[in-house]
């Protein structure tokens, strides 16, 4: 059996007395897309933040490529090859969009030593091109719409050339048309290849999403959380038929 890329064992997180993540364990294989679902407040964002090292777990361990990444700083984790997007987008509003992406293109993982600004700029431009907002490159980030901000988040994340990409609600607040476009972009990214100067190995992904229909089209596996506990893990169509998942989403009695 090939070694799994990300291995989460017995992960727990408490905020005071509140168990937000409760003994969660699952594995992510190389080149796999996992959909992470669960009702509001289930602890999905918290789980991603634990993986990124933004929050410190209270118990359990996270292994990435066989290496324990508990307690590492966020930037070290990114430089190992994990990148994330934020659910509530966090652009650098007063910087031009291209500079937003240049920041992540400047991480040690993606940048060769002493690389010139021009080259970094070209690389950032390719990331924007991939995300489909290269025409706005010189505008301030504060002028972007919701959907374009999501795209900017993705452009920033792939600027670090990740092997594992954590997307927090990439379809949140998008119109059906935009959602389809975004789903296509994600699939294209997953296939991998070169986008101009930008190299993509076809990262594995964990996608948090509420729009189950779209998610099922791109995910290989679905993991469901409810009140911080893992309640299902399996093929998409199995998971959505799982009575526990239906109960978590629609309450006692089902649909």
């Amino acid at each position: 059996m090939a070694e799994s890329l990300l291995e989460i064992v017995g992960l727990g997180k408490r905020f005071g007395g509140l168990h937000v993540t409760n003994n969660v364990s699952f594995e992510l294989n190389q080149h796999e897309i996992i959909g992470l679902i669960g009702p509001n407040g289930a602890g999905k964002t918290t789980l991603l933040r634990l993986i990124m090292g933004i929050l410190k777990p209270s118990s359990g361990s996270i292994r990435f490529k066989g290496k324990n990444i508990n307690g590492l700083k966020t930037w070290d984790i990114v430089n190992l090859g994990i990148a994330c997007t934020f659910q509530n987008m966090r652009p650098f509003r007063r910087l031009p969009i291209i500079a937003n992406v240049m920041v992540s293109c400047m991480c040690p993982r993606a940048m060769k030593r002493g690389e010139w600004v021009k080259r970094i700029e070209a690389k950032a431009m390719d990331a924007l091109e991939f995300a489909g907002i290269s025409d706005m490159a010189l505008e301030k980030a504060s002028t972007l719409s919701q959907g374009d901000l999501k795209r900017l988040e993705i452009a920033r994340a792939i600027g670090t050339e990740p092997e594992l990409l954590l997307l927090d609600e990439p379809f949140g607040g998008l119109s059906p048309l935009e959602t389809d476009l975004m789903a296509k972009s994600i699939k294209r990214l997953h296939k991998g290849g070169r986008f101009g100067r930008l190299h993509s190995e076809g990262p594995s992904m964990i996608i948090v999403e509420h729009k189950l229909q779209q998610l099922m089209k791109i995910a290989d596996r679905i993991v469901a959380l409810s009140f911080g506990t893992l309640i299902a893990d399996g093929k998409p169509d199995e998971v959505v038929r799982n009575p526990q998942v239906i109960e978590a989403y629609f309450g006692e009695g089902g649909i």
Binding site: M52, I54, K73, T74, W75, V78, N79, A83, C84, F86, R90, P91, F92, R93, R94, L95, A99, N100, M102, V103, S104, M106, C107, P108, R109, A110, V117, I120, R156, G159, T160
Partner: peptide, 22 residues
């Protein structure tokens, strides 16, 4: 390059960290 990073740190430090910058 450094200037862009300093600027970005002022805007949102956490997002800069998530970009892999120390």
């Amino acid at each position: 390059k450094t200037g862009i990073l300093l600027h970005a740190i002022r805007e949102d430090e956490l997002a800069v960290r998530a970009g892999g910058i120390n």
